[in-house]
């Protein structure tokens, strides 16, 4: 009985652990090995020599790599606060008040962007922001009364704005719905009692709702940060990183070096390992913070 109790959890855990180890860990070990070697996929005649840390040095000296990292952090730093602010606003609008049916519709509609295949989001962006016949430029023309013909995808800064806009469109609903579920947890009595004290929106937000919103905010921060650092699909179809490299986020850059052009697996693996270190540190910090003591 005693031994059985000790063995049971391992029987339950073993299949999942084994599978994840084969598909998740073994490749990482191999990637670490590749990152220490010359490995040019497109030139199989060049031997896979051990080169110590030279691939890592190449990466550290590579301006384009740091450019892509900086761009990704900028993308994160701009889009996440906007998603949070807009999401909170939308959650407030949806929470209570008049227009019950409209609120119901809007709440259901918010699910649509979330379920949208990111590849398709990118394609829709490409259609809507087309300089020539896109509906966005049409709307701008109607508002300004002149032909603006903004070249959304041809201008480096505007292309970056475009990927931000599509990111915000797709993921603000995520923040809105999570905030909404946080707000639903605010006890009605507490809030009603507070209305007698103050009518200020901000005071309500700070003193009554905030405690219930904090876990929601943490969840949004963590999950969106993780997903934005993984962003590939939507940008791949929307701009493919262009024009120039103005929308080339880190994952697009790494795949371009490893699998889409340079085929330098050694350098790309070094980049990937550095990314892994970065995300592991971030996620460890995040999860520890989110689940403080929860699983001890």
């Amino acid at each position: 009985m005693h031994t059985q109790r000790r063995i049971t959890p391992f029987v339950f855990l073993a299949p999942a652990v084994l599978v994840l180890a084969v598909v998740g860990i073994y490749p990482l070990i191999f990637a670490a090995w590749v990152s220490l070697h010359t490995y040019l996929l497109a030139q199989p005649n060049i031997p896979h020599d051990f080169v110590w840390l030279s691939n890592y040095l190449t990466v550290l000296k590579d301006g384009s790599f740091w450019g892509a990292i900086g761009r990704t952090l900028l993308y994160l730093g701009v889009s996440l606060p906007i998603q949070i602010a807009l999401g909170l606003g939308i959650a407030m609008l949806l929470r209570r008040g008049p227009w019950g049916r409209l609120r119901g519709f809007a709440r259901v509609a918010l699910v649509i962007p979330l379920a949208m295949t990111p590849v398709v989001t990118g394609l829709i962006g490409r259609l809507m922001f087309n300089q020539d016949f896109g509906v966005v430029n049409f709307a701008l023309n109607s508002v300004t009364g002149q032909t603006v013909g903004t070249e959304w995808l041809g201008n480096p800064n505007l292309a970056f704005v475009t990927i931000l806009l599509m990111e915000i469109w797709q993921w603000t609903p995520f923040a809105a719905l999570i905030f909404l579920s946080g707000l639903t947890a605010v006890p009605v009595e507490v809030e009603e009692a507070a209305t007698l004290e103050t009518r200020s929106f901000w005071a309500m937000l700070r003193h009554i709702q905030l405690p219930f919103l904090l876990p929601a905010l943490t969840a949004i921060l963590i999950l969106r940060t993780a997903d934005i650092l993984k962003q590939f699909d939507m940008v791949y179809t929307l701009t493919s990183g262009g024009p120039g490299s103005s929308t080339e986020l880190i994952n697009l850059y790494i795949t371009r070096i490893g699998l889409r052009g340079a085929f330098d697996q050694g350098v790309a693996s070094a980049q990937a390992i550095l990314m892994l270190v970065l995300t592991t540190v971030l996620s460890r910090m995040y999860i520890r913070y989110l689940y403080r003591g929860d699983n001890a």
Binding site: G24, L259, A272, T280, R284, I287
Partner: peptide
């Protein structure tokens, strides 16, 4: 537990390179 969860945070780019080669 942490190891299971952290997979959710790992970028697929990190795995796709070695998996492709293997």
């Amino acid at each position: 537990w942490f190891w299971f969860i952290s997979n959710r945070f790992m970028s697929p780019v990190v795995i796709i390179l070695p998996v492709y080669l293997l």
